[in-house]
């Protein structure tokens, strides 16, 4: 029993950040950042107003637009508002892995069930803007070497499996994947790192509906 309380106590002290960006109905993107304790209770939630890239940005940033917007603009603004320091940040889009160059905490992309951690989307393609302003896909240019993923525009990454979760960890700091493994392994049995993104999406939809 004592051991159980210690375990719960440790878990309650755990702080995990979840960052996700959703397309907004009026165009652009809306970002959400949820901080949970180790048992999944919400502590903080921050969301942005819609962020719409300009046509110039779409043309000039090309395939790097999303990494720029998600990881260098939306993410850092949200994290700046947070009051609770977190042990790690999980993202639902691989483009957000650029966050790793902005912050010191480990950043990991949680790979959805049934998708390869090496690929974005089912066809392994990344988004680039088309001249008509709509988004289409083009072949991805990534490689994997000994568990390390390299993708243009992103920091080097490493695939880590914790319980049923497959994580693509930005390895700007080489020790980041191991830190993450040590942090989460004690609770890997029931750990579902994808689930909080559903909550963020519901909250962002609610926030959009209610203005």
């Amino acid at each position: 029993m004592r051991e159980h309380h210690d375990s719960v106590g440790n878990r309650l002290a755990l702080r995990l950040g979840f960052f996700s960006v959703c397309p907004h109905v009026d165009g652009g993107f809306i970002g959400g950042y949820l901080i949970l304790n180790g048992v999944g209770r919400p502590l903080e939630f921050h969301c942005t107003t819609p962020v719409k890239p300009t046509r110039t940005q779409e043309i000039l940033f090309g395939a790097t637009l999303k990494p720029y917007l998600f990881g260098e603009q939306i993410g850092p603004v949200l994290f700046a508002k947070a009051k609770t320091p977190v042990h790690a940040i999980f993202v639902s889009q691989w483009e957000s892995l650029t966050l790793a160059s902005q912050i010191s905490e480990p950043v990991a992309f949680v790979c959805p069930e049934g998708e390869s951690p090496l690929l974005e989307g089912a066809d392994g393609a990344s988004d680039v803007p088309r001249s008509n302003g709509r988004w289409e896909t083009s072949p991805s240019n990534e490689t994997q070497t000994c568990g390390v993923i390299e993708r243009v525009g992103l920091p080097p990454c490493q695939v880590v499996r914790i319980g049923k979760n497959r994580l693509v960890v930005a390895a700007i700091r080489p020790e980041a994947p191991e830190e993450l493994r040590e942090l989460l392994s004690p609770w890997e049995a029931g750990l579902d790192l994808l689930e909080p993104f559903g909550r963020i999406q519901a909250a962002l939809e609610e926030a959009s509906r209610r203005g």
Partner: peptide, 20 residues
């Protein structure tokens, strides 16, 4: 010259009582 300005992003924050 095309200036690439960083977008102005407003944030709404919500804090929840840590119910432990």
């Amino acid at each position: 010259s095309l200036q690439i300005r960083d977008p102005v992003i407003c944030v709404r924050s919500f804090f929840f009582l840590a119910d432990e």
